[in-house]
Design a protein around this nucleic acid. Structure first.
Lengths: 218, 218
DNA sequence: CAAGAACCGTAACGTACGGTACGCGCACGA
DNA sequence: TCGTGCGCGTACCGTACGTTACGGTTCTTG
């Protein structure tokens, strides 16, 4: 079930190559990839796969973690932002997020994680969530709170504010992509969506000159 | 691949019972349900399953369509709403939607549809999308436009306005549920979320007394 | 009631795939 | 130079499951 050493220092170069092959196959064939197809594509033997990753689930888990470790982005945290830099930060995060969720790899990974979420056999769903939605929250919350400290934003609960931003950015995009629909997210469309979401978020939570919108609980 | 008659008048009572059994099994076991387990649960023979539904995919497709046909809801369309009734309509739709996407059946169905979306073998994804996200749009758009005609809302593109509402209502709920997370949607939480989403939507698109927020394109 | 269809339960078949075993080549250290 | 070990390729095994076939039972219809 488990390899002797759960490579505590990260996978070796060769292992990383194998995991990249898994990711590519996942994009092409989805969850119906077979151990044999992985071995063929990665030019390694099945025995090696089992020695390194334990079993099929271990291989999938390792691939998901490997992908997660690749997408770490720069955690910029503007200390004392003005409205301009806050807006740019939010737009940047929104663009990054839309780019991620519309990428082939993310779609494929989310699909297999969702497929496995029903079985309870592994925790792929938790891993994807941790490195997707929750990682984004961790990155963004300091920005939101900095904006509040600077008197630019007004909210009580950071989590609620973040989730609102998340909804304004993502809308129906992710579910449509996962279900095979194609919302057509070009670079330009992403930029426009990010700008719109940021504008709407600031309209709701911004302490602007012309308006202040209530949004406390009932 | 296809049964002789694609039951043009809808499934018979017995067939509906079988499909209900499929739905129940889908909730319990996800996509790993077997033809044998369905036959056992539904007390029918495998031969009958193949005669009625062609093959495994046909059975799954029929089950998804059957579920879709069950959730048709009342298409209320307030003709000349005031702010009060518009708010209530929006909140009602939001509550319905949250209730649907957090139901066991919806989660299970979305999971199998997403799992199949990678393969291109069938169009489960399209069916789910058509009866989920797109059906909601079709129901809600007349309400939004009635609100605009009554001078309560202001937007250019109905689709864009709808997607904003969709995002404000759903936020991260659906993806978290699909990935096995449990946001804890009680009846009360749903009501509160629906109210908050409606409030935020009206803040963005409402022609209220105290403010008018710009949201046109750049 | 008789004849035939529909359907149930189960056995059987073929295949795909996860997992294992083994032989060979190649690199590296003594 | 000779082990020694890692990893590639491949053959093999067991099982699960989709699909088909068949005998027996119940339901419909004339």
């Amino acid at each position: 079930m488990k390899p002797e050493t759960e490579f505590m220092e990260g996978p070796t170069q060769r292992q990383r190559d194998v995991l990249d092959a898994v990711l590519r196959l996942l994009v092409e064939e989805g969850d119906k990839i077979t151990m044999a197809s992985v071995a063929r594509r990665a030019s390694c033997s099945k025995e090696t796969l089992y020695k390194w990753f334990g079993d099929r689930d271990g291989l999938l888990t390792a691939a998901v973690k490997w992908q997660a470790s690749k997408v770490r982005v720069s955690p910029v945290d503007p200390r004392n932002p003005d409205l301009q830099s806050l807006t740019e930060s939010l737009e940047g995060y929104a663009r990054d997020w839309l780019k991620v969720i519309s990428s082939d790899t993310s779609i494929a990974l989310n699909r297999v994680a969702i497929g496995h979420a029903g079985t309870g056999k592994d925790n792929l769903g938790a891993i994807v969530l941790e490195n997707g939605r929750f990682a984004m929250a961790k990155r963004l919350k300091p920005v939101l709170e900095a904006g509040r400290n600077a008197g630019l934003l007004c909210f009580e609960d950071t989590e609620t504010a973040f989730r609102t931003f998340f909804g304004l950015v993502g809308r129906d995009v992710q579910i449509r992509l996962l279900l095979g629909d194609w919302p057509g997210l070009t670079e330009a469309a992403i930029a426009e969506d990010a700008a719109r979401a940021t504008r709407q978020f600031l309209a709701l939570y911004g302490v602007g000159k012309s308006h202040s919108v209530k949004h406390g609980r009932k």
